[in-house]
Design a protein around this nucleic acid. Structure first.
Lengths: 259, 259
DNA sequence: CAGTGGTCTAGACCACTGA
DNA sequence: CAGTGGTCTAGACCACTGA
């Protein structure tokens, strides 16, 4: 029996309402209506975690739609991690354990400009160097081979926000050192010249080096949020960056909404 | 013209190969083959960011499948953020700007056990309290109203890893104080009793309080990675937690793979 | 064996875009 | 107006599960 009777015998005329950016006005496509119906039930406890959800054929009857339409609605919920399906058995409300949150780590320029603030970068180092053991390992190049090294400070409205210490594999970006990094960020430039297949991140707390503390105009005893990022293109490491942010000026915020 | 000719005139017999967990053996369903074909081209630069991709009807002809099948393949790429579509215009390879990475923040018990290690929790505070101004605001309750407060330390193989300072709205979990938190984590318990509609996170660096430093057996001058989490259920805040981790023992790792 | 999900076909109507 | 994507229908065959 329908819990929410959102469906009647009237055939759907394709609605004409604008599907604007937010999509918040009204979900009118049948598969959207079915998704919304199921999400509501999941959010309100009609189907608590682990419960058996209605089968496709039940929803077909309830909403007077074809199975393809019901299937799409449920499949998208599955892709969002809200339900789990087992062939031959049924569809179940997912246990919402893993509160995984998508912490977006964007190009610092976009991030600052997105807040409506002014971004300015200063370049403190830009040269070719011989790879140390740790850098050689991270970029998968030979010890003492030539790598590019830049050190920038990114300012938000004039306040130093991020110290970017970056090593680049010359094979992936031979012209890296000729770029004016006060005009375009290394991240942005590298996105353009080297397709990115994989990025590995870590986020940790730590203390700045004395040089970093000076560049960031902070005390060497103040903690920092440190993001390390290594990007790889088909087995070839492109770049390794250490991004140091004063704890008092930077935090990562995120929201997780399952339903 | 097909770049990769993965399709012939032979009609697909449904393959029988096991679709095992990894799914790595071979993607045999037509929509999977088309997805793989398009992903390969995106990864190898056949369609650089911004390029016009083949239309649905071109792919229909190329792979000898129906439009629904092609549509599903492309729609899933769109949902993964790899292509962008505009009705009446076409499908375009996405600019891979935002390197958003899903940093999963799981229940600490699952995380430690998942590493094959032993989890143990010690309880240092478990009581009802009057809400201070900041807690009242975060839990959206009246100043000086009763809230539950627990302070736990989570150990991994005997080493203190996380100090969990948590406030709970009694309306959402009236029996919270009767739970044995050496047996089940507050996170796990609250997941069971209160459906979660939204979680807000922040990740920052900071110094531990003197009490936290003592509980974590660390120097008060050592930085910590601090995760703050507030969960909300339909406008009613459930809980607010401050999770403090010694920098030397904890970092968040993540991998981002667009293709 | 009945019920479930997984996938596909060959059409259809529509809104939108840009020439 | 031709081409594009957005969505749907009413069927189909199949693999899988559990009684």
């Amino acid at each position: 029996m329908p819990v929410f009777s959102q469906s009647s015998t009237i055939k759907p005329k394709r609605a004409q309402l604008d599907r604007s950016v937010a999509g918040a006005i009204s979900a009118q496509a049948p598969f959207e209506r079915i998704k919304h119906y199921l999400k509501s039930g999941l959010a309100t406890g009609v189907w608590p975690p682990g419960a058996l959800m209605p089968s496709e054929s039940e929803l077909v009857a309830q909403f007077s739609v074809s199975r393809m339409t019901v299937g799409r609605a449920i499949r998208e919920l599955q892709q969002e991690g809200l339900v789990e399906r087992t062939q031959g058995v049924g569809t179940f409300a997912a246990e919402l354990h893993r509160v995984s949150s998508s912490l977006t780590i964007r190009d610092i320029h976009e991030e600052i400009v997105g807040r409506g603030h002014v971004h300015r970068a200063t370049v403190h180092l830009k040269r070719a160097e011989r790879a140390s053991a740790s850098i050689a390992k991270r970029l998968d190049v030979k010890l003492n081979s030539v790598v590019f090294h830049t050190l920038l400070v990114h300012h938000e409205n004039g306040v130093p926000l991020q110290c970017e210490d970056r090593f680049v594999n010359p094979i992936c970006a031979p012209d890296y050192l000729s770029v004016d990094f006060t005009e375009v960020t290394p991240t942005h430039y590298l996105f353009q010249v080297a397709p990115l297949i994989e990025a590995q991140f870590s986020v940790e707390a730590g203390l700045p080096s004395s040089r970093e503390a000076k560049l960031l105009q902070m005390s060497a005893a103040e903690p920092c949020l440190i993001v390390s990022r290594r990007t790889v293109n088909r087995d070839t490491p492109i770049t390794f960056a250490r991004l140091v942010h004063p704890a008092s000026r930077y935090q990562i915020d995120s929201v997780f909404k399952p339903y």
